[in-house]
């Protein structure tokens, strides 16, 4: 079987305040949509926000090794769809 796609939603303080609070729904909706093809979880700070002034690009989500800046539900779903192609 193919390797599962891993989706990590950063729930550290910076990402949470800058919008990942609204990405928590992915933790419910992604398994419902993709079944066991995708592993999704909320994770502690990925450390991406503290590099220089990069808090302004939060919230961050990692889809496998790809970092999504200013993540939205739509951007994350699109990235998953690309990987599944």
């Amino acid at each position: 079987m193919d390797k599962k796609i891993s989706v990590k939603v950063c729930l550290g303080t910076t990402c949470f305040v800058m919008g990942s609070a609204n990405l928590q729904e992915l933790i419910d909706t992604v398994p419902a949509k993709y079944g066991d093809k995708v592993d999704v979880s909320g994770v502690p700070c990925l450390g991406l926000c503290s590099i220089d002034w990069e808090f302004s690009k939060a919230p961050y989500v990692k889809v496998d090794d790809e970092v999504i800046k200013e993540a939205t539900v739509e951007k994350v779903l699109k990235a998953i769809d690309e990987k599944l192609k």
Partner: peptide, 10 residues
């Protein structure tokens, strides 16, 4: 403010 001071509540 928490972000500006780099305080991670978690």
């Amino acid at each position: 403010w928490l972000i500006a001071m780099n305080i991670k509540v978690e």
